[in-house]
Amino acid sequence: MRAFDYTRAESLDQAAAALDPAASVIAGGTNLLDLMKLQVMTPERVVDITRLPGLDAIEPEGEGLRLGALVRNSDLAADPRIRARYPLLSRALLSGASGQIRNKATTGGNLLQRTRCPYFYDPAMACSKREPGAGCAAQGGVGRMLAIFGTSDACLAAHPSDMAVALRALDAEVEVRSRDGGLRRLALDELYRLPGDRPDLETTLAADDLITAVILPAPVAGSVQAYRKLRDRASYAFALVSVAAVIRMDQGRIGQAALAFGGVAPRPWRDAGLEAMLHGKTPDEALFREVAQRLTADPAPNPDTEFKRPLLRRTLVAVLREATGLAQPSIGTDATKDAA
């Protein structure tokens, strides 16, 4: 860890004023300190926002909910309103990290966590995400955790968040406060950039922007929600692939479907074309296979991740079977309920 100045922000204005490209916000710190210890991140100033008032609440917002940026992952997952109306979000959060980390990690921090590509994590390896233009040692390396969608020649990294995948399927928006105090809302695809030739630029946020909240719209009434995560052990591991689904059945047909995928792209991946293929159809395994086939039609950019195509395909079929009633739901597939 490089030496840095530590400051504790007392207000949002003060926090924003302290931020520039050489500074980092610290909240949960579970990923930032991890990376700082390895000198993958080397901020000169660390701005502690954990004591800012008002950012740790979950409050009604229209028909939906406003999740403060400092709400801990464990508190968010356990909130009765989330459990009842957005079970997918609880499930995704609870599939990530460990109990200890979820007690520390925040909503905002979870969104902004960095990739777990081992070449990004090792400063001895070339990485354009760490150092623009340095190249990508993961190309031709060992790449089990890498992405299969949305990559570029400069970067194969996948975004590791489970929470963000659920938020993508739930059409959440991120509330961002700019230095002048103005607020704007970004859909997740507006927040995250694809790597292109600048994989170091992961979001559209300015250095002095602060994420203040995540806004959940009203949940799809009467939907079944599912989060299924595949990993190299039963718990406490990042996703090889994950599937988030929100399905509303309408008289035996699929009335509405939202699907998002994790572990496979530099941001939570969503493909509207797939959802359109399902709309209005009667649940059918052959249809699900066709949808999954289309999702994974293109070869993986890296031979090491070729396995993710069949894995994602089969996981999606399994999730759709359960979410549409073709198969008995297993743990992770829940019917939404009215708020407690």
């Binding site: 530590y6 504790r8 610290i26 710190g29 579970t30 300190l33 980390i101 007690n103 520390k104």
Partner: peptide, 13 residues
């Protein structure tokens, strides 16, 4: 009262 990893947090916080 909450369990956390003491390695992933700064004493200053």
């Amino acid at each position: 009262g909450r369990r956390i990893n003491a390695c992933l947090t700064l004493a200053a916080m």
